[in-house]
Simulated assay, not measured.
Amino acid sequence: MPLAPDESARAEAVLGRLQLLVTRKLDGLLQGDYAGLLPGPGSEAGESREYRPGDDVRRMDWPVTARTTQPHVRRTVADRELETWLAVDLSASLDFGTARWLKRDLVIAASTAIAHLTVRGGNRIGAVVGTGSGVPEKGGSASWWRRKAATAPDPVAGPVVRLPARPGRKEAQGLLRAIARTRIRPGRADLGELIDMLNRPPRRRGVAVVISDFLAPVEGWARPVRKLAVRHDVLAIEVVDPRELELPDVGVLTLADPETGALHEVQTSDPRLRQRYAEAAGEQRAAIARSLRAAGAAHLRLRTDTDWLLDMVRFVAAQRHARTRGTTR
């Protein structure tokens, strides 16, 4: 089922504003020798320099180390033609927001920024976009699912769409338009399977970007991220809403699980409940960060209540500074 005309017009308007904003703010960030958002190591051998804490020991230059008796690493020149793949999670939990943005809007914004930063110079960009299965799980509210089913897409369309990697700004704009027009489906999405699709078929070394709230169980997606990082430079963009970190004191609050439809009443005026909620949310986010760090992925957290573009600019600047200091993690 295609988007309604008003929803399609809104998606086009939001995408147009985002592209203008990104162009104004991010132009000039890629001046220099790097072709993409992450200054990856490339494959062409360059000069050697002394080892610094945090350098990849796999790039040790043993002949120079032996001659100088000081550990050296071999620099490499970043590949000029870059292939970037996005794993875009648009599961039902992303259709939520209590601040300046919906989480799904932030997903589209991040995709727009990455496309702008990586599509130059003949670079290619593709994506796999995942949403719910369209099948409600047990325990969901019947009336809630009837309302969702009325706006759900054709179930035969499938929960995952692959958009092939192509060069050029026009193709990148078409890819972003397809992401923006994706309708979120009810049911749980398999984030691990979505990430694993970036490994099939095997591709030459490039950049892989995973955009999600990572609320799926860590054990379901941690191994695919580690596997992806063996061959590619991985960037994980975590989308967070402040209400997922702490509850406000607003009395009795009825909450609906966007993926199962289950309803829960919560007494938010209880300070102990709010404290337990904040502690559990903090532990969950810490576990996500640990898993991404252990996988060797760069980690960027974007919040719906802050300036996401400023956060991204700071992240890119920090990555470049870290590369000159010898580490990007």
Rank of each mutant, 00 (worst) to 15 (best):
L198I: 09
T324N: 08
S212V: 00
S43N: 10
L15Q: 05
M1C: 07
E81N: 13
D33V: 14
T306F: 02
W62R: 12
I237W: 03
H116S: 05
A110Q: 08
E193G: 15
T84Y: 11
A109Y: 09
A92D: 08
L163C: 07
P155V: 02
E259A: 11
V266R: 00
R181N: 14
L273M: 12
R75A: 04
N123K: 03
L191G: 00
V135S: 07
T112Y: 03
G46Q: 03
V209N: 05
E44S: 12
V207C: 04
S212F: 00
V250H: 01
S93V: 04
A318V: 02
L228I: 05
V119Y: 10
V73E: 00
Q31H: 12
H232K: 06
E265I: 09
R166K: 14
V250D: 05
G326T: 10
R147N: 03
L30G: 10
V57H: 10
G121L: 03
D249C: 13
T268M: 07
G54W: 08
F96Y: 15
T306P: 00
G261T: 02
D56W: 05
M312A: 14
R147W: 06
W308S: 01
P63G: 06
G168H: 04
A92Q: 06
E47I: 02
I114M: 07
R59Q: 09
R146G: 01
A298R: 15
Q284D: 08
R203S: 11
A150I: 04
G174Y: 04
V218E: 10
L245M: 14
T260L: 08
T76W: 09
E283V: 09
A109T: 08
S91F: 01
M1E: 08
S141T: 02
V160C: 02
H264L: 12
T112S: 11
L302M: 08
Q173A: 11
W85H: 14
L102H: 10
V230T: 14
I108V: 15
S291C: 01
R67D: 01
L38Y: 01
L302Q: 04
V64R: 15
V160M: 14
T324Y: 04
A142Y: 11
G36E: 02
I108Y: 00
R325C: 02
E279G: 00
V119D: 03
V128H: 09
S269D: 13
D190R: 07
D27L: 11
G54P: 13
G192E: 10
K138I: 11
A297M: 05
A13L: 13
R146F: 01
L175S: 01
G206V: 06
Q267L: 14
L37H: 01
A287F: 00
I184V: 15
L176G: 01
L21N: 12
A208E: 04
D61W: 13
L175P: 07
E259Q: 10
S111D: 04
R205H: 12
G122K: 13
R181T: 10
W62I: 14
A157V: 11
D190W: 11
A78D: 12
Y277R: 03
R320C: 00
W221V: 05
E7H: 15
E238R: 15
G121Y: 05
R231W: 02
Q31W: 10
E47S: 13
L90P: 04
W144Q: 00
V250S: 03
T131Q: 07
T151I: 13
G54F: 08
P63S: 06
I237T: 03
A35S: 15
P153F: 09
